[in-house]
Amino acid sequence: MSDEGTNTYMSEAEIKALANGARRDIIRMVAAAGSGHPGGSLSAAEILATLYGTEMRVDPARPDDPERDRFVLSKGHAAPALYAVLAARGFFPRAELTELRRLGSRLQGHPDMRKTPGVDASTGSLGQGLAIAGGLALAARVAGRSYRVYTLLGDGEVAEGMVWEAAMAAAHYRLDNLVAIIDLNGLQIDGPTAVVMNPEPLEAKWAAFGWRVFSVDGHDPASLQAAFAAARQTRDQPSVLLARTVKGKGVSFMENRAEWHGKAPNAEQTARALAELEGGAA
């Protein structure tokens, strides 16, 4: 793979379309499964669409290419969003999405790197993805490879102490090929993060740990792309994007509602959600 890679360099409009298509698939697959996590999947749609649409060097035909960029979904419960984007990029057939969570499916409830093409790490137990991503980034240095590593964390997830162990280590080892994105949707299972366990001030915390911090609009591909580009130019320190998002984004009755963290819509709600999303960015 050349330095230019095989990413598609999608336009902003194409990324928005990829994100909106992913949202529709998230609703369909969670509804078909009868369980899953729509809220935090919908909040991450533009982040994943920007990563897989333009930022990362990946080739769906060669998901095991040792030179590919890596992505670790530390907030593993957002698996529907990852699966939707991977399917849209051609890592596996889109028709398979409705097999989510079924017995025998390649699409496990949380990501399984041994089952799903394009999934780079098995996750689901929160707080561990940053360390895995750090190890992958360090491996690139040892093996003389030029790939970059991206990981997406939730804002409730950063209460895990292991996140900060890994944050310290990534800065200590100057992993400038590592980018963390925090999906700052402000809600976790039991309610607002500010009430359950306030993670703020996140900007000051990450900066104090030695990271370059970017505050971005997590639903704006241009904002995300600008930060990714600046991170790429950053030397000797890892970067973190604090991505402001809306939990349940795109579905009016799910937006900013903690109860949609981990439940499936019924048939009527599914129809309403899809109708709203059909009207979204095409």
Binding site: A131, G135, L136, A139, A140, V142, M162, M168, A169
Partner: peptide, 12 residues
């Protein structure tokens, strides 16, 4: 963290 990094190094 050491085990997480070890996992990533192995995945790499």
């Amino acid at each position: 963290d050491m085990m997480g990094f070890a996992a990533g190094l192995a995945a790499g």
